[in-house]
Amino acid sequence: MKKTFLKISILSLAMSIIVACSSKIEDVSPKVEGLGGDILTKQPIDTWLENTFTKPYNIEVKYRWDANEVNLGKTLTPPLLSRVQPTMEAVKAIWIDPYEAEAGADFIKKFCPKQYVLVGSREWNANGTITLGTAEGGRKVVLYAINDFDKKDVAGIKQMLHTIHHEFAHILQQNILPTPAFNQITPGTYTSNWYNVSNATALSLGYVTSYAMSDPNEDFVEVLAEMLVEGKPAFDARINAITNTAAKSAIRQKEAIVVDYLKQAYNIDFKSLQTRTQNAIIAFTK
């Protein structure tokens, strides 16, 4: 009897499956049109970007306007086509090449942000400050004011590369945390009103820039970026000019932590990296 039950039940199950499957299969999920991103006709610059950034480093460089890549609440413009290649040449020469030479090709491939978004104008903030670069979770870097890029403008190039080194340093810092001792060097003077402080005042309080005062994480990457982009002689001259000995010593302590951090965490000789970065800036803006 039990066997019969079993047979009947298997039969009925089989029947139901057959019946259920026999109805015409209706495609309820038709092909989605336009999947796989925008299909844009390649411009000459696209080939160059692909060969220089995408193929070797898996970095996407997006220069054509996509409102969803930037702050929707802000008024911004895409970059001039003619400024895209010079800008990215500077990025390659002054950021990627020195790191690659110092830490090996895989280092950049592993840690680099995977997407660069270029914006032509500056980003204006409600408090009157402007943003020249932003980074999101170590994956994406947005560079602003590309239209003002000028190969001969050393100050302008330094400012832009400062942004890039700054954002890249955030990625390094987020992957391997620096010593908490850094946060205790000037613990009481971090402020969200950093933009009301001049760079000179910031120096006298023990910060390399006023933005470094915004919080210890920014402070850390500002020290790293300033040292790389300004170079040792200029950086030293600026620190030595500080009259407040406590401030001077604070910046020197921060400097020592940054140098030590790169060596311990990533086995990078900071002095050599700094020299390479400086030589790259000189060669590029020649």
Binding site: W65, T75, P78, P79, G120
Partner: peptide, 16 residues
């Protein structure tokens, strides 16, 4: 219609 790289038109959009 998106004018997706800088042109005369963007001179009017430009916040700078």
């Amino acid at each position: 219609l998106i004018f997706d790289s800088y042109s005369y038109l963007h001179e009017l959009v430009n916040p700078d």
